[in-house]
Design a protein around this nucleic acid. Structure first.
Length: 806
RNA sequence: GGAAGUUUAGCUCAGUUGGUAGAGCAUCUGCCUUACAAGCAGGCGGUCAUAGGUUCGAGUCCUAUAACUUCCACCA
């Protein structure tokens, strides 16, 4: 028997431990069931998890549990993304020191310690949310086995000519002192000034006006551009201009990209101030002048400003220009500047030796791959395609950092030639290990590559990393394509894109067939939820503690797929009510089922009706979930459940209470319907609210079904042959009951008040007569009278005494 | 500048392939009914952003407009 009140804090813990200890969710090796594999997002280990992350995982959870109950063998791995810049920045904050202030090895060791601590915290949270992924054996993106796969991928793609090492312009963060990728850019509105400067024409007293937002880059000007159709300025061609203050001369060149309308129509080009400069440098083969160092200090080119920060130098140069009467005017502007998403520092372009994966020459294939994947919701495909179309940089995978997977590469001390590691020796650390064979030039001494890989170079291999946990096959396509990649929409251009790149290049296959894209949880005012706010009162830990994991999961699963939702605690109340109602309804129904074993019997008409309604619900529920529309499936189920409580149970409870009055057969029939429909509903609720459904299931159904958990049982499928006619007629009976209730409500009497008679006019009286006993019981009526005709119900007089049944 | 999304009851949102506008919350009126007052019954409340179009019929399809949101590009 179920207790009077359900205590979630005791029960949730109880079942979490039970599931964990009994390996309820384990992947069944050697089973011949259909496999359903999920490429679980490994959380980035760089701080706290907020409600947005949690809700996204709760969607994945529901899908995993759903497929398990469809009878599939669900591969639901788990891992941590615990290397790379995000982790380094987290650690730098914790220890209040920059990575470069410590010896490399010391810093890496601190990273390993700190991530371990955080991972324990994450682990507890995942468990307390009732997650059914494999928490026992998880992968880590810094672990040796992962390093091996990642380095192997590097070697393979290098062999295939997809990776190249080149001194080329790359996006550079002066704060993190590393190169980064296009996907790490984030626009930020920054206040600045547009400065109109005098460029004198060499050998004359005339000058032209050139506008710039970056006067500190004057020392790096390599030429000046005008539009080839610029009549006003064409006299400048073949003349030289003098760069203000710095005094050196530059040529005037033409290019279509120059906007005639902007500024004076004359643009200075430095290498590199922005993307266009990068284009021009390549196109016109311009010299490269480095104005600043890796950490954002001006170089000797800046003359007296050497050593200053970029912004400091800007200010001093402007002062100087004013002093020398070279600054005509300044306009205040706010413009969008590309910044580094990890630290918010404006991104520069710097030339360094970097490792790149070629993506620009495969745009077409990458575009097609996006077309071939199934995106849920469909509109998310556009974001991917939009990103691929706008790609303008090859994927720079090298980072001048420390806590990452090293490149398995050395350089010969003698000839400087690259030396790649052998696949069988992986993983290698080129700073500790040495190649086993000499260089082609005969030299035996090497210098290891100090750069490390971008974290996405590794996490783009999660299909292989998680497969490897099972098979130990490393870089292998045994489980490719996986069934599902779930993540939030911010990761489309990053993780999803890079994973497609790797899978296409390695195996010429899509990494997965389906993508399920979650929306964001925003603050109540609609702004982004920041990780920094995760410690507030609404931390996942606190929410789960206060509202239970089930209610939190209910909340998360009510979000429409792909749509951002403002976080609101009010929404949790519905979940609380549902859980409470489910408990009470189950308690009530089970009180009649004690000792009952289901067996076929002659069914009363309204019991048949309920079964048909259930089949209809089951059908719609499955169709929605097949499209990952969890919220809609849940909504259908809830509507059915509340109607089951308020209508069906009310209709049959007297039959259940009084078999002596209504007959054993009528009671059996109600029990049959109650048993199946309650069980079926519990199963359908269980992916979303796994704890309370388990508690109810285990108290009664588990033994009869011979299962050790509801979560490894199958859904209750009562067939697809739905009798729509019976459903419509039964619904008419509910209409009659509703009209009687309305009558009593309008007359302000209790629903149990007895009435003399009900006169029903309808065209389906033969059917209604079959339900007469139930109608009489629920409406406390003495007598039902029938007329043929258009549907109408007339309720008779209220009477004082109890009607005599039979 | 390009793309996507949103606009439905006071609030938060559902609304499958076109067929009489839905739920929860809020509010109001009742009801302690042998599971549940964290409940039950009932009521009030909507020119479905605007303007056109297709259709026997449009919240749903098409075209334009407006407002808001997001992504991308621009960054001289």
């Amino acid at each position: 028997m179920l207790e009077k009140k359900y205590n979630f804090s005791i029960n949730e813990k109880k079942w979490q431990d039970y599931w964990f200890e009994n390996d309820i969710y384990k992947f069944e090796e050697g089973s011949n069931k259909k496999v359903y594999s999920i490429d679980t997002p490994p959380p980035t280990v760089n701080g706290k998890i907020h409600m947005g992350h949690l809700s996204s995982y709760m969607h994945i959870e529901t899908v995993a549990r759903h497929h398990r109950m469809l009878g599939e063998n669900v591969y639901f791995p788990f891992g941590f993304d615990d290397n790379g810049l995000p982790t380094e920045r987290y650690v730098e904050k914790v220890i209040k020191k920059k990575a470069y202030e410590l010896p490399r090895e010391t810093f890496v060791n601190i990273c390993l310690d700190e991530t371990k601590k955080l991972e324990d915290e994450f682990f507890d949270l995942y468990k307390s949310a009732g997650f059914s992924c494999n928490l026992k054996t998880h992968y880590s993106s810094i672990a040796p086995r992962t390093q091996k796969i990642s380095q192997h991928s590097f070697l393979e793609l290098y062999k295939k000519g997809k990776i190249y090492h080149a001194e080329a312009p790359a996006l550079w963060c002066t704060e993190c002192r590393t190169a980064c990728a296009q996907s790490e850019l984030e626009d930020k509105d920054i206040e600045s000034t547009f400065n109109y400067l005098k460029f004198y024409i060499s050998g004359t007293d005339e000058y032209v006006v050139v506008a710039t937002t970056r006067p500190e880059m004057l020392c790096g000007v390599v030429c000046v551009f005008i539009n080839p159709n610029d009549e006003k300025n064409k006299h400048l061609l073949n003349k030289k201009l003098i760069v203000p203050h710095f005094g050196f001369e530059v040529e005037v060149l033409t290019d279509e990209l120059v906007d005639l309308e902007k500024g004076s129509g004359i643009v200075m080009c430095c290498t590199f101030g922005d993307n266009v400069d990068k284009e021009w440098q390549r196109k016109h083969n311009l010299p490269i002048k480095e104005c600043f160092t890796a950490d954002g200090k001006m170089t000797a080119l800046a003359k007296e400003f050497e050593g200053m920060s970029i912004l400091g130098c800007r200010k001093c140069v402007l002062d100087k220009l004013k002093e020398e009467d070279l600054l005509i005017k300044q306009e205040s502007i706010t413009h969008a500047v590309s910044t580094h998403d990890r630290c918010g520092t404006p991104i520069e372009i710097a030339v360094k030796k970097q490792w790149f994966i070629d993506v620009l020459s495969h745009k077409d294939e990458l575009y097609k791959a996006g077309m071939d994947c199934n995106w849920y919701p469909k509109t998310m495909r556009a974001r991917y395609l939009n990103w691929v179309e706008n790609l303008s940089w090859n994927w720079c995978i090298s980072r001048q950092r420390y806590f990452g997977i090293p490149f398995p590469v050395w350089f010969c001390k003698n000839c400087g030639k690259l030396k790649m590691a052998e696949a069988e020796d992986l993983p290698v650390d080129p700073l500790k290990d040495m190649p086993k064979t000499p260089c082609e030039c005969g030299c035996n001494e090497f210098v290891g590559e100090t750069d490390v890989m971008d974290t996405w170079a590794t996490s783009s291999l999660t299909p292989q990393i998680s497969t490897d946990m099972r098979t130990g096959l490393g870089l292998d396509d045994t489980m490719i394509p996986m069934n599902l990649r779930p993540n939030a929409h911010d990761n489309i251009r990053v993780w999803d894109f890079y994973t497609i790149v790797k899978s296409l290049y390695h195996f010429n296959k899509l990494p997965w067939s389906d993508l399920m894209i979650s929306g964001y949880v925003t603050s109540p005012d609609g702004s982004k939820l920041a990780k920094s706010k995760a410690n507030s009162a609404n931390s996942p830990q606190d929410i789960i503690k206060t509202y239970s994991a089930d209610v939190t999961r209910y909340w998360a699963n009510n979000m429409t797929l792909g749509k951002d939702t403002a976080f609101s605690l009010v929404e949790f109340d519905n979940g609380k009510k549902l859980v409470n109602k489910l408990w009470n309804a189950s308690k009530f129904v089970l009180s009649f089922l004690e000792g009952y074993t289901p067996k076929e019997c002659e069914l009363e008409i309204m019991d048949k009706w309920l079964i048909e309604k259930y089949k209809d619900l089951h059908d719609r529920y499955m169709k929605y979930l097949a499209k990952y529309e969890i919220a809609l499936a849940l909504n259908e189920l809830e509507k059915f459940f509340w109607s089951f409580c308020d209508n069906y149970v009310e209709l049959v409870k007297r039959r259940l209470y009084n078999p002596d009055v209504y007959g054993e057969g009528a009671c059996e029939s109600a029990k049959y319907a109650c048993y199946h429909v309650l069980l079926g509903m519990l199963k359908m609720f269980s992916p979303v609210i796994p704890h309370i459904t388990e508690e109810i299931y285990m108290s009664y159904f588990a033994e009869l079904e011979g299962k050790k958990s509801i979560h490894i049982s199958r859904y209750l499928d009562l067939g697809n042959d739905i009798d729509k006619d019976l459903i419509a007629k039964g619904d008419k009976v509910l209409d009659i009951v509703a009209l009687v209730r309305q009558f009593k409500s309008e007359n302000k009497v209790s629903l149990k008040t007895f009435i003399e008679d009900i006169t029903i006019t309808s065209e389906i009286n033969d059917f209604i007569k079959l339900a007469e006993v139930d109608i009489k019981a629920v409406s406390s009526a003495y007598e039902i009278k029938y007329n043929d005709g258009e549907f109408n119900v007339v309720v008779g007089k209220v009477v004082e005494e109890e009607p005599i049944t039979e």
